[in-house]
Design a protein around this nucleic acid. Sequence first.
DNA 1: TCTGGGGTCCTAGGACCC
DNA 2: TCTGGGGTCCTAGGACCC
Length: 415
Amino acid sequence: MRTIFHVDMDAFFVSVEEIFDPSLKGKPVVVGGKSDERGVVSAASYAARKFGIHSAMPLRTACQRCPHAIFVEGHPDRYRDYSARVHTVLQQFSPLVEMASVDEAYVDMTGTERLLGPPLRSAHTLHETMKAETGLNCSIGIATSRLVAKISSDQAKPNGILYVMPGLEASFLAPLEVRRIPGVGKVTEKNLHSIGIMRIGDLAGLSEADLEARFGKWGLALAGKAQGLDAGGWFDKDFSTESSPAEGPKSISHEHTFDHDTQDAAQLEATLAHLAEKVARRLRDHALHARTIQLKLRYSDFTTITRAHSLPEPTQIDIDLIEHSRRLLHANWDRRQSIRLIGIHASGFSEEQGQLSLIDGGRAERWRQALQATDRLRDRYGESAVSLGSGLRGKYKERVQENPAALPGSGPRKV
DNA sequence: TCTGGGGTCCTAGGACCC
DNA sequence: TCTGGGGTCCTAGGACCC
């Protein structure tokens, strides 16, 4: 029998902002951007939630619900820093810690009783240590599976601890809404409601065969989740010993939503080139080469298309990404419509570089050296210090020169 | 409710090969 | 040349998570 903690930081981004500006404490605070910008809420303080504000809500809606709320841009580097501190605290309690995202983690506490006491006691100690060492509140769910631990930390919020004792999983889950199951979103919830399944207990009452007939493979997974089982069964894996083969990212992408929809080809190309440079930069940082380049366009009416192209040889060079994404743009953009969002996505990674690229083999090495030099300059002087020329073009260039903040991605970053 | 940005995983159809 | 079946790769779209 395992003992799993799911540790979830309370209103993480807001709480970190409060450390840097204590005057925010207790006030309705919204992290995500200005109140009149295109964008959504990344995190809301508990005071803001009282006005009906929640994450993923459009900023403009949040502003309508609470005009006197304080809107702040996020600080991703601060969150990464505090996430690392959280990780450090957790490692004092178990060597088996898995950060599931920037603000939550699974900790395998199996076998720590002799050292740290029974689960409720060690959770209490962890809770206090977290507050003392990071200044942040967290909620802790304790259970025999990751799934139930996660659902119970959710029920423990804010700033609480909830222990689902072994054997009580089914009775804990039964009264909860199906939406509480991780992986059940709006669509699945609606589908389940349409056949009269409202609560996890209802779901647990259906047979595997029934669920499979209705939802296919996903139905089988759902049947397991309704029992509180992790994906691979109950006792199966012991997380960090079965070394994660999925080392490193599987895709790297950047996208940008314009303040105003546009049909200006120069602006689109300049933005795309800039996004491509950021993707290429990150490919080099990870020592990865991508074979598939995908363009994403979202029109004013919010219809979204993606168009992909696979290269004969993988690449990590700016101009390959810029050229291929530019071709995809011109081949697929319906010019009757104006564009709200443009993005580029790289996948199909390998660690080796391709023999061919748009540049012939002899010059490839010099290119690599030049790119390394620009990477270093950007490290030292900032992202906008160096550009390959194609990143800036036409009208857009003028705007950028007058106002560096006009360049997507420069200035304070959104979360 | 006028809807971000970064990811992961899944499905489904068609091409192509044996 | 009245036509099966499987495997793999590629592409497009969508659900979901934080």
